[in-house]
Design a protein around this nucleic acid. Structure first.
Lengths: 231, 231
DNA sequence: CTAAATCGAGAGCGGTGCTCTTGACACGCT
DNA sequence: AGCGTGTCAAGAGCACCGCTCTCGATTTAG
């Protein structure tokens, strides 16, 4: 359990096997989606199916591990992309964030579908996925917070419904979300939905025969949303 | 084949059984999602599984039928909702369209997931789904066309990339999409992605713990996008 | 009235997730 | 150094799946 300085051979073998199973499962994700076959990944590893159950108690648990890895991977990519832009360039940071998310999604389309597609039928995401899942959105919150702190004016728009304003003010109690006034937060969530809507359309093949210049159009949308956010 | 005036008993029985299978499959969709069990629907109908194959050659074919029905149902709902608003009220028509889509999605969440969620792993949508699938978007195209015809100015925004402009100009060759200049079409597709992004977030449970006033927030977003479209 | 078409039932194939038991092996402690 | 303990992969087995094929019963059409 407690892996001291000298990791035992058994423990390291277990860690390595766990990684090998996840890697094989990731490859099967491309073909079978969320209903991948445990037996198939076992076959790939030259191992009998029941052996896999030593490492993951069920198919759902393996899926959860893949989801957690996916969120971590996307979170890394999003943070890295955004961090490469000077702090003062707010619009540039937003665009870099959006591009980072898209690049990751294009590189890992099946993981993207797992994270942001329709929920897996019998599967309920355990509570420990909400933390990693919010990492990308926290990057955007940071941009909005910096924009507000820099005195960037929030564009005029439709009046925020009272109930929504209450929700967003309640959200301010969480320090991770504080410092962003409701009017700005509402716009941010709208832009966020736009980003993932556009991404889902592209990745799920919902705009074939319409747009071929995917990347250029995605960039255009990012710029449009930057303007919408007042960045 | 040619069902003349007097439909044979067999033909009507076949039509009825086809409907019963689809209905049972729709109910299973709620539990098992896209990987529903043909055997289970057969059990529900008190029939052996092989009998279902008399009506649908494969599980995929049954899924295709459900998808087609779904698009038709959504198309009806979208057209009906939008048609209830006076032609001159462009923003109202857009908002009614968005609400209509949402109402349908809330009433048929599993069909929504089937149509707009992650693609079913081994399943490739046959070509005859593209027509019905475009019905809702055609409603929005009609609104944009009317807006342009009425002389509504297209708001200023980021420059449209050349490749995107070319795509959208090529799209004009299709009479269904003509009459909408690229700058407007680009905004329309952005708003469309926003709409379905917001809907997917709500239906796939991606904004729990943030917003409780779903409907009010959705309406707010529709108004924001109406402004974005210049309606 | 008869031949053809259609129907549901049933058996059967290879696959699935998952459980349980068995024997071999590596570990940590004395 | 040796021994008990815990972990390991393997294999058999259960119930379910999609799908195919055959067979007798029934309805249709000529």
């Amino acid at each position: 359990m407690t892996d001291s300085v000298a990791t035992t051979a058994r423990a390291s073998a277990r860690a390595e096997m766990t990684q090998r199973i996840k890697q094989a499962a990731r490859e099967h994700l491309a073909v079978d989606g969320a209903n991948l076959s445990l037996r198939a990944v076992a076959r790939d590893l030259g191992v009998v199916s029941s052996a896999v159950y030593r490492y993951f108690a069920s198919r759902d648990e393996l899926l959860t591990a893949l989801i957690l890895d996916g969120y971590a991977s996307l979170g890394d990519a999003a943070e890295r992309a955004e961090a490469a832009v000077p702090r003062r360039d707010l619009a540039g940071r937003w665009i870099a964030l959006g591009r980072g998310v898209r690049d990751w999604a294009l590189a890992n389309p099946h993981e993207y579908a797992l994270l942001y597609g329709s929920p897996v039928p019998g599967y309920a995401a355990p509570q420990d996925t909400v933390g990693p899942a919010s990492r990308p959105v926290l990057v955007m919150v940071e941009i909005m917070r910096d924009a507000v702190a820099a005195g960037v004016p929030i564009p005029a728009g439709p009046r925020l419904p009272r109930a929504v304003r209450a929700d967003l003010e309640r959200l301010q109690d969480d320090p991770a979300f504080s410092g962003v006034p409701p009017a700005m937060f509402a716009r941010g969530m709208t832009a966020w939905a736009q980003l993932f809507g556009a991404l889902s359309f592209e990745l799920f093949g919902r705009l074939t025969n319409a747009i071929e210049a995917y990347e250029a159009y995605f960039d255009y949308q990012l710029r449009a949303m930057a303007a919408y956010l007042g960045l």
